[in-house]
Design a protein around this nucleic acid. Structure first.
Lengths: 148, 148
DNA sequence: ATGTCTGCAAAAACTTTGCATTATG
DNA sequence: CATAATGCAAAGTTTTTGCAGACAT
């Protein structure tokens, strides 16, 4: 079973919560995706398996997961309204957004660790988490642009 | 005169726009601030000089500035609703948010350049801009926490 | 003067909440 | 069976828009 499901189950146990079908479906959908869905995306996807599911339930589940620190969200510049949800804030990875096709690529970099410690050293702050977003053109779109 | 005002004036000239008192006031307020205000913040601040100013005008000006690429916005994790606006996407600087007192600190790092070029080298993408957000406790809050 | 911009009010977009009902543990 | 969670509808919060009048150029 996936990390997220296990962690959610644990959290529920701890606080006397219940693993409902809706929650399980939302969690499974979230785990299976490699995109970063919005609440609406998730609603539309889960609705295919359970047409009776409600948007409120999706929002409530996402909020709970955020509060439990089991997921994160990002508000990409280009997308004024929607928040995009994403698993595993603990496994450090960062995001590149292609401003032409809106594809999100993930990447990793050991340099971010160094940025954190450098900031800590300079300011005396304690850095608990970090996010990096890059924006630009992906290889594909760059090629298409060149061909024109 | 500040960069932003000059750039805005230029953009207006280019597109037959007009430098109204409201726009000038909003721009000046934005320039004078070292915080990263929300639309509402900006509305309240500008209202002190011109009580007749309207929230719509603030939003319209901010949207125009975003579209002209003269400002950026960030949606900090902790603040679900508000977007925070910020000058000069070109002068690279990044943000630390203290999750206790909500202070925003800016910092600079040459390492971000290296993250960009490394990503470009690995993927063939072209990175046009980047953002880094750090979250944690500032020195002050860290101290207060320790004293308890 | 001409056409852009504003204020106002209404609507749109996104998210949360109250309550009766369902269903998990 | 106790009570947490859901669906539904209504409300809340932030942002955008239509329109008539105001104001830069």
């Amino acid at each position: 079973m996936s990390d997220l499901l296990l962690q959610a189950q644990e959290a529920l146990q701890r606080q006397g919560g219940r693993m409902t079908n809706q929650r399980r479906l939302i969690l499974e959908t979230l785990v299976d995706l490699d995109i970063h869905p919005t609440a609406e995306d998730l609603y539309n996807l889960t609705r295919q398996s359970d047409p009776s599911i409600n948007l409120s339930t999706v929002y409530r589940t996402l909020r709970w997961l955020l509060d439990e620190n089991l997921i994160q969200f990002h508000a990409f510049e280009e997308d004024r309204y929607h928040k995009h949800f994403d698993l595993n804030p603990n496994e450090e990875h960062y995001h590149f957004l292609c401003t032409s096709c809106n594809t999100v690529l993930e990447f990793d970099s050991q340099l971010v660790e160094r940025i954190k410690t450098s900031f800590e050293d300079h300011t005396g702050a304690e850095v608990l988490s970090g996010d990096v977003f890059l924006y630009g053109l992906c290889a594909q779109c760059r090629k298409e642009e060149a061909d024109r």
